[in-house]
Design a protein around this nucleic acid. Structure first.
Length: 430
RNA sequence: GGGGAGUUACCGAAGCGGUCAAACGGGGCAGACUGUAAAUCUGCUGGCUCUGCCUUCGCAGGUUCGAAUCCUGCACUCCCCA
């Protein structure tokens, strides 16, 4: 099956510039394809997954992917899909973000491949040196304003001009598409890049690049967009109550990341499997059937979480996330090492307590709950125990007067306390 | 400037001399149920060295054997009239 028909089957094609000929064009020889990434944050998040995976799919089919971070365009702010003028980031902030993003991309793309290594570039490198006059002469000359005005990204903003509060767009943002269009031409010149992929909101910018290349170089370039990743309830994928789901383990631990996908709605699971994994069509269809017959097993979510966590946090990160899941959902904790526990409970608050208290003093479950912060007062701790909500190493503690001793340690120095179903805390005895 | 109403625990809101750590609702916490969802049901919900003691009812004083409840002053909020 060809790459393009696979993408179509998955629902990953929103629009292409050549619905008819692109398949054959891609089959003809390895092509170079690029997608852009917005450096407004120092880490990639779930929203960037589509682009990264798209490039990865192309690379696996033998094409050469180029990831472009928008060091220059990020300074301007892409108006596409935005209802308001964007705040500009400082150059230093952008530089930092660009570096952060590069590291994460290596998880998706192979930069070492002999045949078609991926490439990571920053568009500031070929945009930064332009002077305003030169840019207007050489690039701006090729942009008819009437065409620019007809782009959706511009129209939707201008239409809002008479609304109170959110007025129009600045000249800066209006110029954004020139920069992105020039990126495409530059990448064609330097790397022979002939295809640009992007989210459906990038259509206008992509076609602007194709037009520019036709005018400046008399070549025909290609473009395709993928649909926006949304949930059936209309909300954005990758958002939780506590904020975005990041691809950086420092911001979103592998466990949290894994859990996010485990909790995907049944209604969204099939779509996610298609859009975000590389599972075969057969396997996805089997999961569809399983989801209808045994929704409670949640095989789809499990598989989705597994695939994505593996790509982003590697096999080891996946193992940690799964072990943590097992433990967070009730498995008794014993015979683990400090290191293992620390890894599993990265998201959990911990407190250090003098080891002597385990042997010399009376250290009761009540004190432990208060000490760890799980209970605000001894009264609250007492209540929790009385109601059967107190656990040490996931084993329920029933007696209010229960003494904790070295026997209650889950590892060399750590004890795992839990209040209720999900609230955990660690006590380290040193 | 004049007149009136109010200020109670995390929030809303009862209580108007002892039986008030203070009804009720929401929230929160725990338990049961469950697919790590939602709903539902049950219990708890000031602190402590816990059959008792301590601190809470805008703030400061006072009356009384005894005050969240009565009196005085102060602060803030709201409403009405100018």
């Amino acid at each position: 099956m060809s790459l393009l028909s696979d993408l179509r089957w998955r629902g990953l094609i929103h629009q292409t510039t050549h619905d008819e000929g692109m398949d054959a064009w891609l089959a003809e020889k390895p092509r170079t394809v690029y997608a852009g990434f917005d450096p407004t944050a120092s880490s990639l998040h779930v929203g960037s997954l589509m682009g990264l995976l798209m490039l990865r799919r192309f690379q696996k089919s033998g094409h050469r992917p180029i990831a472009v971070v928008g060091g220059a365009t990020g300074m301007i702010g892409d108006p596409s899909g935005k209802s308001d003028e964007r705040n500009l980031l400082s150059k230093e902030q952008l530089q930092e973000n660009v570096e952060g993003l590069g590291k994460q991309m290596a998880r998706f793309l192979d930069f070492e491949d002999q045949q078609n290594p991926a490439l990571l570039v920053n568009n500031f490198d070929w945009t930064g040196h332009w002077t305003y006059l030169d840019f207007l002469r050489d690039i701006g000359k090729n942009f008819p304003v009437n065409v620019m005005l007809s782009k959706d990204s511009v129209k939707s903003r201008l239409g809002r001009g008479d609304d109170v509060g959110s007025a129009g767009m600045s000249y800066t943002e209006f110029s954004y598409m020139l920069l992105q269009a020039y990126d495409f031409v530059h990448l064609f010149d330097k790397y022979g890049c002939e295809l640009q992929a992007g989210g459906s909101d990038q259509w206008g910018n992509i076609t602007a690049g194709i037009d520019l290349a036709r005018r400046m170089r008399s070549v025909q370039l290609y473009g395709l967009t993928w649909p926006l990743l949304t949930k059936t309830d209309g909300t954005k994928m990758g958002k939780t109550e506590s904020g975005a789901v990041w691809l950086d383990a420092e911001r979103t631990s592998p466990y949290q990341f894994y859990q996010y996908w485990i909790n995907v709605d049944d209604a969204d699971a099939g779509n996610c499997l298609r859009l975000l994994t590389e599972l075969t069509h057969e396997e996805i269809e089997l999961l569809d059937i399983a989801r209808v017959n045994h929704p409670d097993k949640r095989d789809s979510q499990r598989r989705l979480a597994e695939e994505l966590t593996r790509v982003i946090h590697s096999e080891a990160g996946l193992a940690t996330a799964q072990k943590a899941t097992e433990i967070f959902f009730g498995a008794e904790i014993s015979d683990l090492s400090d290191a293992q526990l620390t890894e599993i409970f990265t998201d959990v608050p911990s407190k250090t307590v003098a080891r002597a208290r385990l042997s010399d003093e009376m250290f009761t479950i009540i004190e432990a709950l208060v000490e760890s912060g799980l209970a605000k007062s001894k009264g609250e701790a007492r209540r929790t125990v009385e109601q059967g909500g107190a656990y040490v190493n996931n084993r329920r503690i029933t007696g209010i007067d229960t003494q904790l001793t070295a026997d209650h340690l889950a590892s060399e120095t750590v004890m795992v306390l839990r209040s209720g179903k999900k609230k955990y805390a660690l006590l380290r005895f040193e």
